[in-house]
Simulated scan of single mutants.
Amino acid sequence: MSAFRRGVRLAVDVGRARVGVARCDPDGMLAVPVETVARDDRSVARLAELAGEHGPIEIVVGLPLNMRGEDTPSTQDARAFAAELGAALPETPIRLVDERLSTVSAHTALRQSGRSQKKSRSIVDQVAAVVFLQHAIDTEKRLGTAPGEILAPGEE
């Protein structure tokens, strides 16, 4: 079993309208929200800027698989977005991780904190990114191996 890989990670929750971004500290103690990026022709460039600011050892992109663990159109969209991000940041590994139920968990947490779904819309993607990043960190610490898969260069 290998040790936890020390270093900041950025997490990206890819949605049709918005991209939620979260990060963790170098020791993987806590994942925190960073920002919500509009999903447009500047979103990959903004994520590249955030990567420059935070210096992550990798970027974790959530894969919205269905409950049977199969790809959906949203999964294919997230893979394509991850490939674009990988092309923009060839020196930064892109890791694809299962993010099933992270948005549901994010909505639940926000509702429990007293926020309506309408008021939560602008931050739910950040919170979903926090949820699956924290899960990925905890999984790596528990199992000694990073979850998910590394996106190979040129892969989509």
Rank of each mutant, 00 (worst) to 15 (best):
R100K: 03
D41S: 13
I137W: 02
T108L: 14
P147A: 01
A51N: 01
E70Q: 15
V97A: 10
V34F: 03
L10Y: 09
A31F: 09
G114D: 14
L151P: 00
S120R: 14
M29D: 15
E35H: 04
R18Y: 10
V8D: 15
L10M: 08
A128Q: 09
Q112P: 00
A31Y: 11
Q126V: 10
A106C: 02
R68T: 05
L151D: 02
V8E: 14
V127C: 05
A51E: 07
P153G: 04
H135G: 08
V60I: 08
D41F: 10
L47P: 01
A3G: 15
A11F: 11
G69T: 03
L151F: 06
L101K: 07
E49A: 04
P56G: 07
I57H: 06
D25W: 09
G7W: 14
T145E: 15
V44W: 07
S2F: 14
S43G: 06
A80L: 10
A106Y: 09
V32P: 00
A31H: 09
A45K: 00
E35T: 09
N66A: 04
S116T: 13
F132I: 09
T72M: 11
T103D: 05
L133M: 07
G15C: 00
H135T: 07
I94R: 05
A38N: 07
R9A: 05
T145Q: 08
L96I: 05
R5M: 08
R5S: 10
C24N: 13
V130S: 12
T103F: 07
G144I: 06
A48N: 01
I137E: 05
Q134M: 06
G148W: 15
L133P: 00
V130P: 00
I57Y: 04
E149C: 02
V19M: 05
M1Q: 11
L96M: 13
V127G: 06
A78G: 13
S74Y: 11
A11I: 05
F4V: 04
S102H: 14
A31P: 00
M67K: 00
V19F: 07
T92F: 06
D40K: 03
T139P: 00
R142H: 08
R95T: 02
R6Y: 11
R142T: 12
A83M: 04
R95F: 07
Q76P: 00
A11V: 05
D13L: 05
E84Q: 09
E149S: 10
A48Y: 02
E35R: 12
S113R: 13
R6T: 12
E84D: 11
I94P: 03
P56S: 03
A51T: 04
S74C: 04
G7L: 07
D138I: 02
V19E: 07
V127D: 10
Q134V: 01
D40E: 08
V131Q: 14
P73A: 10
R42L: 03
V124T: 07
D40A: 02
G144H: 12
L143G: 02
P26L: 06
Q112V: 05
P26E: 15
Q126A: 13
R39Q: 11
E58Y: 04
T75S: 13
T139G: 03
V131H: 11
S113D: 09
R9G: 05
M1P: 01
R39N: 09
C24V: 00
G20P: 01
